[in-house]
Every structure is written in structure tokens, then in C-alpha cells.
């Protein structure tokens, strides 16, 4: 399951680019494309927007690739780019509707009902209703399998904030899901 996902193997995939002078951002994007789209999907809820966000992030980082000197940061950099893209999509959606609308779409709702069991949907709905930071931290941890420092680097917050955010997120999910036993 998570072990086969792209965003899981930062060191492995960076080993090769490290040998080179400059990081090939385009290649990194291509290599991690599926994992990044999946990350965006969990943030946005529908595949089309997820693909679009990754494509845009790809284009932007491509334009600025000369500025990226540190190969160790490359993967965190592209993850951040995708995450930022997701944030703007969510912002645009809620402004367009003139009311808060975290995200509605397919993974969490209609079409996927048949594909995802009731329990999965219940969890995803609960996740959807969390504050943005908690949602992001939980997805990076439990989908991406990232460590606290890696999540910190991606979200631009400190590792200790990551720890407390994950803990609060889990607690909130537990409350929502009635895991009170």
C-alpha cells in the first residue's frame, strides 16, 4: 500500500540527481507524477483538479529551476509547490461560491460511493472537515509516509508544530468518527 507510493522514497529517488550538478526538476516531476497527483487528489477530492495542480506546479518549478541549488530540498520543493497549488484551488473555489467550501468532489462523494466503502467515505468526510493544516499534515503523514521534519519542510512549519498538528488532527478525527471506546 503506502510503501509503493512515489512520495515515499525521497532519498532513493534523489540519489541519482545528487550526482549531477543541478537537479532536473522536470525529471523529478515525471518520476513522482502519480504520487503527486494522488497527494493533490487527497487535498482537492477530484482527479481533474489534482492533475491540473500538478501540471501547473510542474510548469512553475520548471521555469524557476535554475534557482534551485540544493538537491536535497528538491522533492520537498515540488511537494510544496503542489500543496500551494491545492491551497489556491481551494481558495478560488470558496471565493467563487462566496462561501466556505472546503471540498465537495468526487472522491468524497457520489461517483466513488461504489468504489469506496462506507467506512472509507466516513473517514474522508471527517478529514475534509478538519482545519487545513491538520488535514495537510495528516495526509502527508498517513498517505505520504513522511517524517516530521519532511512534513515540516513541505508545509513550511516547524517539526514541533507538525507533531502537535498531527496529534490534534487525529484526536479530532477520533471524535468525529466516534472512536471513543
Amino acid at each position: 500500500m503506502e510503501t509503493e507510493l512515489d512520495v515515499n522514497s525521497p532519498r532513493l529517488s534523489l540519489a541519482e540527481p545528487l550526482a549531477r550538478e543541478r537537479v532536473d526538476i522536470a525529471a523529478l516531476f515525471v518520476e513522482h507524477h502519480l504520487g503527486l497527483v494522488r497527494l493533490a487528489l487527497l487535498m482537492l477530492g477530484d482527479q481533474a483538479s489534482a492533475e491540473d495542480v500538478v501540471q501547473e506546479a510542474f510548469e512553475r518549478t520548471h521555469a524557476g529551476r535554475r534557482r534551485l541549488r540544493d538537491p536535497d530540498r528538491a522533492l520537498a520543493y515540488i511537494r510544496s509547490a503542489v500543496l500551494n497549488g491545492c491551497r489556491s484551488v481551494l481558495r478560488r473555489r470558496s471565493t467563487a461560491l462566496r462561501r466556505p467550501m472546503p471540498y465537495e468532489p468526487s472522491v468524497w462523494s457520489a461517483e466513488s460511493a461504489a468504489m469506496l466503502g462506507e467506512d472509507r467515505r466516513e473517514v474522508l468526510f471527517a478529514l475534509r472537515d478538519l482545519p487545513r493544516r491538520q488535514r495537510e499534515a495528516l495526509v502527508l503523514r498517513y498517505y505520504g509516509g513522511l517524517s516530521d521534519p519532511e512534513i515540516a519542510g513541505t508545509m513550511g512549519i516547524s517539526a514541533s508544530t507538525v507533531r502537535s498538528t498531527v496529534a490534534r488532527g487525529l484526536a479530532a478525527l477520533a471524535r468525529e468518527l466516534g472512536e471513543n471506546a
Binding site: E2, Q47, A50, F58, H62, A63, R121, L170, L173
Partner: peptide, 29 residues
């Protein structure tokens, strides 16, 4: 329990997107 359910839900959700159905990256610009 919550962690377990969350992992399962996320994993199932992302598996709705796979390498065959994902729109490939297109050339920048």
C-alpha cells in the same frame, strides 16, 4: 484505530487514480 482507518481510507482513495488513468504531464509553457 483512527490511524488505521485513516491509512486505509487514504490508500483506497488514492488507488482510484492509477498510472493508466492519470493525465500525463505536458510540456511546460
Amino acid at each position: 484505530m483512527v490511524e488505521y482507518r485513516l491509512r486505509q481510507a487514504l490508500s483506497d482513495a488514492v488507488n482510484t487514480v492509477n498510472a493508466e488513468t492519470v493525465r500525463p504531464l505536458t510540456e511546460p509553457r
